[in-house]
Nucleic acid binder design. Structure first.
Length: 283
DNA sequence: AATGCTTTCAACCGCAGGCTA
DNA sequence: TTAGCCTGCGGTTGAAAGCAT
């Protein structure tokens, strides 16, 4: 006999948003059996979902340890840097941010970061035009493609928030009868043989803060503290020149028309993130 | 208040590579 | 060796919410 039986019958498969009841069923099942063997999940649970949908729901939303919303400046910088190195390989990028899913990073890139980078490009162009001999600047990456329309900063729709709350509520019940903490439970799951066997691809490198910081390129090769000063010093400039790179930067940096200094981008991200000037960034 | 446009993000689709019978 | 399933990935879609008029 060749091949395997089909994973699920396409007829009668439910699509669309998951209900809290479905989430409970899925979480309960995975509590008992561990993630993986997705073909069996709809069969054994009675969920009218295909195995793919179950895996996606678990991987992107129900899996413990996922951090939702509010990307930090550090995370943004890491994503931008890795995207420039790896391209749109979201799974690879997500492996450096274990609390984030590839889908979340992809969405965040498409809805926020591309716009920020586009505005950054506009600022660099403005600066280049004001100083140079005319050659138009570009970054070395394809980061700046995509539309820019009427940005709204860091909004979290109420539906998104309520959905997160629902999931949190679901997982609040995820406690063993004993006094094992949820962290212990998560740990016990991810170290279980069934989990390891079934989710070998979910083994992201867990990086220390130092390692995470090392992923972020430093502008001008200068020290953290000096860069930090640079960023903070320039916060005011940028607000008074119609979006152009400020005079301070003009005097401080040597601009390569092909590759605007990374610290410009870092500073831009910092400004766009609304991080207070006294909040110490990593560089 | 009503309407239409824009933005966001959860979920789906289709493909590729690996695996299995 | 081969046919076909399983899993993971990246691109895309569409419903819902926000915003502007």
């Amino acid at each position: 006999m060749m091949g395997r039986p089909p994973c699920c019958d396409k007829v009668g498969i439910k699509k669309g948003p998951w209900t809290p009841e479905e989430d409970i069923i899925l979480v309960s099942y995975i509590q008992q059996h561990g993630p993986g063997n997705w073909r069996l999940v709809p069969i054994n649970t009675g969920l009218m979902r295909c195995s793919k949908s179950c895996r996606l729901r678990w991987t992107n939303y129900l899996r413990p340890g996922i951090k939702r919303g509010n990307f930090t400046y550090t995370e943004e910088a890491i994503i931008v840097h890795l995207q420039s190195l790896l391209g749109n390989r979201w799974a690879a990028i997500a492996s450096y941010l274990p609390q984030r899913t590839d889908n979340d990073i992809k969405n965040y890139w498409n809805t926020h970061l591309k716009k920020k980078l586009r505005r950054f490009q506009a600022s660099v162009d403005c600066y280049m035009n004001s100083t140079s001999s005319g050659s138009s600047s570009t970054t070395s990456h394809e980061l700046l493609s995509g539309g820019y329309q009427n940005p709204r900063h860091h909004q979290i729709p109420s539906a998104y928030a309520s959905s997160t709350e629902n999931i949190s509520r679901l997982l609040q019940g995820w406690v063993m009868k004993s006094k094992i903490t949820q962290e212990d439970e998560v740990q016990s799951i991810i170290t279980s043989d069934s989990y390891k066997a079934s989710s070998s691809s979910f083994a992201p490198p867990v990086l220390s803060n130092e390692e995470l910081e090392s992923l972020i390129p430093l502008g001008n090769g200068s020290s953290s503290s000096s860069n930090n000063n640079n960023i903070n010093n320039d916060n005011n400039n940028n607000n008074n020149n119609g979006g152009c790179i400020g005079a301070w930067e003009k005097s401080q940096c040597t601009v390569d028309n092909q590759n605007p200094p990374l610290f410009m981008l870092e500073k831009w991200l910092l400004d766009e993130s609304g991080v207070p000037a006294d909040a110490a960034p990593l560089f």
